[in-house]
């Protein structure tokens, strides 16, 4: 069993002007998806990253330069992540497929290296 990181990206588009009822329905869909991960023991962790802020650090001329970002460089902003347990990429994809996030953006899946099993 390995851990996979699901990176949820989106530009926030399509979320404006939703009615309270529509927002509740969406949250309901997300939590049904998340509940299912928890019930089947696949859920590991998840966090939301704060919007509209962030720093990018880079070395330029032997000095570390700090820039605001990264939203100036990428169209699809990383909004948050989920970490899940899965046997394979195939299973991780299966777990991710019915996430409601696809209505608003993409999800990148990456396996987390297990340092205990080199």
């Amino acid at each position: 069993m390995a851990k996979y990181l699901l990176l949820l990206r989106g530009d926030g588009h399509g979320l404006d002007n939703l009615s309270p009822e529509e927002i509740q329905n969406l949250i309901g869909r997300y939590s049904a998806w998340r509940d299912n991960l928890q019930k089947t023991g696949k859920y590991v962790a998840s966090d939301k990253l704060r919007d509209h802020q962030g720093k990018v650090l880079r070395k330029e001329n032997s000095k570390v330069v700090v820039m605001d970002g990264p939203y100036t460089e990428t169209k699809e902003i990383l909004g948050g992540y989920f970490a899940v347990q899965a046997d394979s990429y195939d299973e991780a994809i299966e777990l991710t497929k019915d996430c409601p996030h696809f209505d608003f953006g993409s999800i990148e899946i990456r396996e987390i290296e297990d340092m205990r099993r080199p």
Partner: peptide, 18 residues
Amino acid sequence: VVQEAMAKALAQWPFGGI
């Protein structure tokens, strides 16, 4: 303000839970 509060819930609750 209401719209902002609802939008914030939509941004956060999927990750942090209800």
